[in-house]
């Protein structure tokens, strides 16, 4: 996890320096704000990963000598199928169409989104379908 942390921290450092140079040199603010945000996107997860990497046990994927048996066991929940991403996608589709063709399309759009949120959450609690 240390390498992952260093990549993100390096990113944050680069954009921090760039932001400082650009902010002082240029005459507009948009670029500086965007680089400041990019710096945060590097530092926020990067510092969390770094903090965590110093406290956690070495993971098998970070160990160059790890054997496959060290990765045995449950690695996560991977549902084989679910209708709710499709429902959510259709809901988002109708929401966007509502922006163009009429606010009434928000009714089926948001309806589908809420259905997908509730159904997907319930499905997740059950562990998903295989």
């Amino acid at each position: 996890m240390k390498v992952e942390a260093k990549i993100l921290l390096g990113l944050g450092l680069f954009f921090g320096l760039m932001c400082a140079v650009y902010w002082n040199w240029s005459l507009e603010n948009a670029g500086g704000v965007m680089m400041f945000a990019a710096m945060l996107l590097g530092f926020l997860p990067g510092s969390y990963y770094y903090w965590w990497s110093r406290r956690m046990k070495q993971r098998p994927e970070d160990n160059p000598q790890a054997t496959q048996t060290q990765g045995a066991g449950v690695v996560g929940a991977f549902p084989g199928s679910s209708i709710f991403p499709f429902v959510m996608g259709m809901g988002a589709f109708f929401v966007v169409l509502a922006l163009v063709f009429g606010i009434w399309l928000l009714v089926p759009g948001l309806g589908l989104v809420v259905w997908a949120l509730l159904g997907g959450t319930a499905e997740g609690r059950r562990g998903g379908q295989h």
Partner: peptide, 23 residues
């Protein structure tokens, strides 16, 4: 890896892409 980390989010990505293209 056995799959992407968030399989359902992955499926949602595809449906948003397809509907975005149609739109």
């Amino acid at each position: 890896a056995p799959d992407m980390a968030f399989p359902r989010l992955n499926a949602l990505s595809y449906w948003l892409y397809l509907t975005g293209a149609i739109t």
